Amino acid sequence: MTGYITKPPGMVNASLIEFLPELESEYSKYPMTHERWFQPNEKGPKGEPCFVAATEVEEETTTVKKDYTFCKTGPNGTGYYSLLCRVSYTNLHSRIGSVAPTGCGGGLCLCFASQANREEHDRYDDCKRVIFMRKCCSVPNDKKASNQVMNNAVAIAPTIG
């Protein structure tokens, strides 16, 4: 796939799992090609609920549940939303900054960082881009999302000057 994401799917999936472990799911594998977002009150493809309310203990520990992400905010309240629900990616997008790699080689620019640190930041950037695409797109399809993001960028570029 070319466009907004340029790495092969295997590398992108590894980056997603590295920074957001709950994305180790068949539902969130890059590239996603699902036809529509599920709503929290629906059942998923295997008959599983798309929303599971969190207990008080889970709200404190936020353990990883396969095929779900923990969301503090959502239409059904605090709990675990399926990775087939758009609200999952809205919450992941607001959380992605908290898992950013640290260290820039003593400055604000990565040009003084080590090779390993620059590579880690690159993987993080891939993860951040995928989450952004999924949050913005009306369907859970990464190719369509990439096209939408690129078209939006091309449309606003002339207005920036």
Rank of each mutant, 00 (worst) to 15 (best):
M1T: 11
T2H: 10
G3L: 13
G3M: 09
I5W: 02
I5Y: 03
T6N: 08
P8I: 10
G10P: 00
M11G: 06
V12R: 01
N13R: 12
A14I: 03
A14F: 01
L16F: 02
L16R: 01
I17K: 11
E18R: 15
E18N: 12
L20N: 00
P21W: 04
E22F: 05
E22R: 02
L23V: 04
E24T: 04
S28L: 04
S28N: 02
K29P: 02
Y30I: 06
P31A: 00
M32F: 01
H34N: 04
E35N: 11
P40V: 03
P40W: 04
P40K: 03
G44F: 05
G44I: 02
P45E: 10
P45F: 08
P45D: 10
K46C: 03
G47M: 07
G47Q: 07
E48L: 02
E48F: 04
E48T: 00
C50Y: 03
F51V: 00
A53S: 12
A53K: 15
T55F: 07
E56L: 14
E56V: 13
V57I: 13
V57N: 12
E58G: 07
E59S: 08
T62E: 15
K66F: 05
D67R: 05
F70Y: 15
G74K: 03
G74M: 06
P75R: 13
N76L: 12
T78E: 10
G79S: 06
S82A: 13
L84T: 08
L84C: 07
C85P: 02
C85G: 04
V87I: 13
Y89K: 09
Y89N: 09
L92Q: 09
H93R: 12
S94E: 15
I96D: 00
I96V: 15
I96K: 07
S98D: 14
S98C: 05
G103V: 06
C104E: 06
C104Y: 11
G105D: 06
G105P: 05
G106S: 08
G107C: 09
G107Y: 03
L108P: 00
C109F: 10
C111L: 09
F112A: 11
S114Q: 01
Q115S: 09
Q115T: 10
A116H: 04
N117H: 06
R118F: 01
E119D: 15
E120V: 04
E120K: 15
H121F: 14
D122W: 07
D122Y: 13
Y124V: 07
D126W: 11
C127M: 13
C127K: 06
C127R: 04
K128H: 12
R129E: 05
I131Q: 03
F132Q: 12
F132V: 06
M133Y: 01
K135P: 03
C136I: 08
C137Q: 02
S138D: 13
S138F: 10
V139C: 11
V139T: 14
V139A: 14
P140G: 08
P140I: 00
N141F: 10
N141M: 02
N141V: 01
N141R: 07
D142Y: 05
K144Y: 06
K144A: 12
A145S: 13
S146H: 08
N147E: 11
V149R: 03
A153M: 14
V154E: 12
I156M: 12
P158R: 09
T159S: 13
I160K: 13
G161V: 10
G161L: 12
